[in-house]
């Protein structure tokens, strides 16, 4: 896919915008108030809106980079990045080939995908128990 961006044809004038970045920023502000007041979490699916390069730039510039960035290796890469607005996170999922599959802005104290899940914890306990039994058997 990188090759596509290398084709030396460029549009004259400013990068195109669908005019949606400002609306999203307002939505984020409302969602943050709801998070603070009632704990209500909000997820915005960036694939559901027409977004031009100028919208992306406006959004990234307005939200900036915060204190936390995490990379997950789960069915391909996922990147979770807090913006400089606490409680606002970019969550970008990629497939095993590195192609973006979904992009969200989550307004939450911590995105769910970062939390250890009960099912995984149970499996982890089982693995650890097996190891301990094996150690006991050796002694």
């Amino acid at each position: 896919m990188g090759e596509l961006y290398n084709i030396p044809i460029r549009l004259e004038g400013a990068p195109w915008s669908a005019g949606n970045a400002t609306s999203i920023l307002h939505e984020i502000r409302h969602a943050l108030l709801a998070l603070l007041e009632s704990g209500q979490e909000t997820t915005i699916d960036l694939h559901s809106l027409p977004m031009g390069p100028a919208d992306e730039t406006q959004l990234r510039d307005a939200l900036g980079q915060g204190e936390v960035e995490a990379q997950l290796d789960v069915l391909g890469k996922s990147v979770v990045r807090e913006t400089r607005i606490p409680g606002v996170w970019f969550v970008d999922h990629y497939n095993a080939d590195g192609h973006p599959v979904s992009r969200f802005i989550e307004i939450t104290r911590i995105p769910a995908i970062l939390k250890a899940q009960p099912e995984d914890i149970r499996e982890g306990i089982a693995r650890l128990t097996e190891q301990l039994v094996a150690v006991d058997d050796r002694h």
Partner: peptide
């Protein structure tokens, strides 16, 4: 595939 992986799969499918 972990539960995290499943949640990611579901997030992508919902989108």
């Amino acid at each position: 595939v972990s539960r995290r992986g499943f949640l990611k799969f579901c997030a992508a499918t919902t989108s």
